[in-house]
Simulated scan of single mutants.
Amino acid sequence: MNEEKLLRDYEPFRAALEEVLATKIEFFPVESFAMAAAALQLNQVDLLLAGPSEYVVINARTNAIPVIGVTRPNYRAVIAVPAGSPIKSAAQLQGKILALSDIGSTSGHLGPTKLLMDAGLDPNSDLKILMLGDEGSLTNFKQGKVDAWGGSAIDYQYLLQTEGLSEKDFPIIAKTTLLPSDVIIASSNLDFQLIQEYQARILNSQEKLIAALVEGESTKKYHGSSLVAANDANYDIIRDVYQVMGEGDLIAP
């Protein structure tokens, strides 16, 4: 994300966080989790906001410390099929075609993959998965070019609303529990007592920080969010999926 987008989406949050932590906060744009990990390793950044899948990769490479979880209402993955489809469960996707969103996306890739795993399917061999991006996956699904679609519950609801449809038109056949929260990470180079102080200050000012966070152009997803103490164990579900997908090297220390 470049600095222009950071200013557009996160400037109110940056200003509020600076006030809460009583320390100067500056943006450090990165274009990928690899760049974020490198910035932590080079001591170029102290705090980082990351999604669940990005966090486990960054944590493996840097020993970064999870400080604050940013919950997201209805943050879960679903798999849906067209009305009239004979497919009634994720297990029946064997030999079928499933459209997903972006590689590494927690709700658009890893979450649906976890649903396949829970159904006893090998996502690498038991069905054909097409990574088509948010728009491409929904378009192919609407046009009946795939047997099923997997993605975030929010995107699913958006599809129904924009098309004037109901869940009967695209019934859900599998749904995850709430996915792990986005997370504010601290560099392991920071003093641990300072990290604990930052955590306490953020938790004590969460109403102010969430109000600032949702002011951004593309941060509306955080409406109704809360800030909680982060727990690394909550992200083991993401690590499990990476392992089954054969991407264990991504999360190897």
Score class of each variant (00 low, 15 high):
Asp155His: 15
Leu116Pro: 04
Leu160Cys: 03
Thr106Phe: 02
Ile103Cys: 02
Ile172Thr: 05
Gln143Arg: 14
Lys142Val: 11
Gln94Asp: 02
Leu127Tyr: 00
Asp134Thr: 10
Gln94Ser: 08
Thr113Asp: 14
Ser166Ala: 02
Leu132Asn: 03
Asp155Leu: 07
Pro112Glu: 03
Leu130Met: 10
Tyr156Arg: 12
Ile103Lys: 09
Ser105Leu: 08
Glu163Asp: 08
Asp122Thr: 05
Leu130Glu: 09
Lys96Leu: 00
Lys114Met: 13
Ile173Tyr: 11
Ser125Thr: 14
Pro123Ala: 04
Leu159Met: 08
Met131Arg: 04
Asp126Asn: 11
Ile97Ser: 00
Ser125Ala: 08
Leu159Gln: 09
Ala119Leu: 10
Tyr156Val: 13
Lys175Asn: 05
Tyr158Met: 02
Asn140Phe: 07
Leu115Cys: 04
Asp102Leu: 10
Glu163Lys: 13
Gly133Met: 10
Ser101Lys: 15
Gly120Val: 09
Asp147Gln: 13
Gly133Phe: 13
Ile97Trp: 00
Leu138Asn: 07
Lys168Val: 04
Gly104Ser: 03
Pro123Lys: 15
Asn124Leu: 11
Asp122Gln: 14
Ala148Asp: 00
Tyr156Ile: 04
Tyr156Pro: 15
Asp147Val: 08
Leu132Phe: 02
Ser107Thr: 08
Ser152Asn: 06
Ala153Thr: 06
Lys145Met: 11
Asp169Gly: 09
Asn140Ala: 08
Gly104Asp: 06
Leu98Phe: 02
